[in-house]
């Protein structure tokens, strides 16, 4: 698994994809940060910034995972991975952890923005930290969704667009949370990513939400493994 992780991580920076992702992530995040905090001055809202950033993740993170498995399938290089003494789970985890590492590193770089707040204001550090931790886990979930859809197709573009659609649906359902139909409200609450994000906006490190994000990410990774197993038996 470590060999696949290492190759994948290197692969992001052999091709332009890693650089483009980093540049776009930092540019979009910087812009949102500037609009939501610096330009609003006394009305500044870090909460808005974090929420907009989650929507930006929905577009950016599938770009990071779109080639992970689809490209291997297209070029048939997956035959090397599948016939080497590595389990399918190890292969999927190697790919996933590489994408997660790139994302985490860029998120960490992005946190340098908060030094500006520290210089010109008096931010609530606990609030920033809890939001950042939550963003990391939401990102980890989006990457798992991206990896899953990358295993379903040979076309990276199809993989990226499908992942974006599914993530948008999971974000958009939160708008239906006030619906009067009880059972539907319950379902919406269950799949809503944003509903579980709320405690973090108050600076609370909500472990149940983190467990939720990790569980859904694990579910998508498990489904990815099943896709490979199923194709083997098909």
């Amino acid at each position: 698994m470590f060999a696949i992780y290492k190759r994948e991580l290197k692969g992001y920076f052999i091709s332009p994809i890693g650089y483009l992702f980093t540049a776009n992530f930092l540019a979009i995040s910087g812009l949102l940060f500037s609009i939501c905090t610096l330009q609003r001055q006394s009305q500044s809202s870090v909460g808005d910034y974090f929420e907009y950033l989650i929507y930006a993740f929905a577009v950016l993170l599938p770009l990071l995972t779109m080639k992970s498995l689809s490209e291997e399938r297209k070029t048939k290089s997956e035959q090397l991975l599948m016939t080497s003494p590595v389990s399918v789970g190890g292969m999927v985890m190697g790919k996933y952890l590489a994408a997660l590492t790139v994302f985490a590193a860029v998120l960490l770089c992005n946190s340098l923005n908060f030094l500006l707040l520290e210089t010109y204001g008096d931010p609530n550090v606990a609030l920033l930290a809890s939001n950042l931790i939550c963003l990391f886990f939401i990102g980890a979930l989006f990457l798992a969704i991206g990896i899953f859809f990358s295993s379903l197709t040979e076309d990276p573009l199809v993989s990226a667009i499908t992942s974006m659609d599914v993530i948008f649906v999971m974000l958009a359902v939160s708008f239906l949370s006030d619906i009067s139909v009880k059972w539907l409200a319950k379902v919406v609450d269950w799949i809503s990513i944003l509903a579980r994000y709320e405690p973090f906006t108050y600076g609370i490190l909500d472990i149940t939400s983190i467990i939720y994000y990790v569980s859904i990410a694990a579910l998508f990774l498990f489904l990815t493994v099943r896709v490979y197993e199923r194709r083997r038996w098909a």
Binding site: F2, A3, I4, K6, R7, G11, I14, S15, T75, K76, S77, E78, Q79, L80, L81, S84, P85, V86
Partner: peptide, 22 residues
């Protein structure tokens, strides 16, 4: 179809396969 990674150098690729096979 040889399972190659076109963006890798030959030495790097064989090193990767070496690690992959443990």
């Amino acid at each position: 179809l040889p399972p190659l990674y076109p963006d890798m150098k030959v030495g790097e690729y064989l090193g990767f396969v070496y690690d992959l096979k443990g």
